[in-house]
Design a protein around this nucleic acid. Structure first.
Length: 257
DNA sequence: GCCAACGTTGGC
DNA sequence: GCCAACGTTGGC
């Protein structure tokens, strides 16, 4: 049967969690090609991964960064199996409440397919979703594309790290990634992003691929775990209600305002 | 099993 | 770095 479509989020910027860098950018993804999508600690996201089948298509999304958006296309390479990182006490997403007899968390393997020739910023998707029709630059996605984008979980709820995507939305985004056509700043329309003159040094050889703009997280060297033995840490890594374990009743440190 | 407090997600 | 939104927790 026809492949289904999904969206999966990863963080392109370095962030240290329990001593490990959870960064997983499109460049990291392209370099490893296939990765276990470990670290998902949210039940709904996990359930969606269990529905995935080999060959399903995946939008690879850059999250929690300066220019969030769709950076690449990928494919499901292996169906859900227990996420062993939940049992590794040294792992950032260790979950002491689970055990091997009765796995709670699952992951799939995902294979990198193509980089988006044009990074598709969340801001553009929001802009499309906010209007009744697409901006003229992306008129080619048609009414169906607009409708489907309006309905994307990415736009309507945001906080889920693994989402279902309907085919029309997938095709619309695929076209946008291929054709582009929008102004660079259309994406950041609502946001005052002063762009400096581009006298900048053109990012030297290492094009980080964020055509969206140069987020560039500290050009740090790619984290060592890039050898094929160590899987990178993709996915939303938080969502772990794990630490705390049995102790620590909720403490009220909340001081807002 | 309700629901308010709490913590996390993640855009901005 | 702020903070809105929202999922989770746990007291009752």
């Amino acid at each position: 049967m026809a492949p289904k479509h999904w969206l999966m989020k990863a963080e392109p910027n370095s962030r240290i969690e329990k001593g490990k860098d959870v960064k997983f950018s499109v460049d990291d993804f392209e370099a490893v090609k296939t990765t276990p999508w470990e670290g998902v600690r949210n039940a709904e996201a996990r359930n969606l991964m269990k529905e995935m089948r080999v060959g399903d298509r995946v939008l690879f999304y850059h999250s929690n960064c300066k220019s969030p958006g769709i950076a690449a296309f990928a494919e499901v390479a292996k169906e859900a199996y227990p996420d062993y990182t939940a049992w590794d006490s040294a792992h950032p997403y260790y979950d002491p409440k689970t055990d091997k007899e009765n796995p709670k968390w699952f992951m799939v393997d995902v294979t990198f397919k193509d980089r988006a020739a044009n990074f598709v910023p969340l801001a553009l998707l929001r802009q499309i979703a906010a209007s009744t029709k697409s901006p003229s630059e992306v008129a080619y996605i048609g009414a169906d594309g607009v409708r489907a984008i309006k309905e994307m979980a990415l736009v309507t709820r945001g906080r889920l790290s693994v989402q279902r995507v309907e085919p029309d939305a997938w095709y619309a985004i695929k076209s946008m990634a291929e054709k582009g056509g929008w102004e660079d700043n259309a994406a950041s329309a609502s946001k005052p992003t002063p762009k400096l003159k581009q006298t900048k040094s053109k990012k030297g050889g290492k094009n980080r691929g964020n055509e969206g703009d140069a987020v560039d997280e500290g050009n740090g060297p790619i984290p060592k775990e890039h050898d094929d033995r160590l899987p990178p840490l993709p996915a939303r890594k938080r969502r772990a209600q794990s630490d705390e374990e049995e102790m620590a009743p909720r403490r009220s440190t909340r001081i807002r305002k």
